[in-house]
């Protein structure tokens, strides 16, 4: 599941989706529902899509991921919007973090020629984009900006750490 071939991506899609909805959804539910904490790992699928994926397809795959997440979260649309936005934002994040000599286009954002700190920044930004959009869509009004900001600030570090664990586990063979 660490490669950049279609099978690996499908495996990652299913794995991350199930980890997200079966494991981490219970975490936020277990905290009483009113908690600000949400552990989100599914954007990792978007982040790990191969670099050469056509940009519209990235958006479409992200949308499908969000759709799958929403089916289990019983909040149809919220994760869809967040994932779609993250998929669209990925190109800008990558452009922002582009190494001086460019990416190796033949594969995914590769752990092999990109260091851990690069991964930290990349996953952090992707997660941040996702979380901000997700909590905004959940609140659905700029009136609740305090709560949106609080939830993002609380959830981002935890999700980040979890995601980095996943990246570390998967990185050598991505």
């Amino acid at each position: 599941m660490g490669g950049s071939d279609p099978i690996s991506n499908v495996v990652r899609f299913v794995l991350l989706l199930f980890v997200q909805v079966i494991l981490f959804r219970q975490v936020s539910l277990g905290l009483g529902g009113a908690a600000s904490l949400a552990i989100i790992v599914s954007p990792l699928f978007i982040a790990l899509l191969p670099l050469r994926t056509p940009l519209p397809l990235v958006v479409v795959f992200s949308f499908l991921l969000g759709f799958g997440t929403d089916l289990f979260y019983e909040s149809l649309g919220v994760h869809m919007a967040a994932a779609t936005f993250t998929g669209y934002a990925r190109q800008f994040v990558l452009r922002l973090l582009e190494p001086r000599d460019g990416f190796k286009v033949k594969a995914s954002p590769e752990g092999r020629d990109l260091g851990f700190s690069w991964w930290m920044k990349y996953v952090g930004m992707m997660l941040g984009v996702y979380l901000i959009w997700y909590f905004s869509m959940e609140a659905f009004s700029p009136v609740f900006w305090r709560s949106i900001a609080l939830k993002t600030v609380v959830s981002l570090p935890v999700s980040w750490v979890v995601c980095m664990v996943f990246v570390t586990l998967l990185r050598p063979r991505i």
Binding site: S75, L76, G77, T84, F140
Partner: peptide, 23 residues
């Protein structure tokens, strides 16, 4: 990607409004 994004985002917003009572 932009047009795909806008279309899917609008679809998402439609879903949010249609299927979530608080929103």
């Amino acid at each position: 990607s932009f047009f795909t994004f806008v279309a899917l985002q609008l679809l998402s917003l439609y879903c949010i409004i249609s299927f979530n009572s608080p929103q």
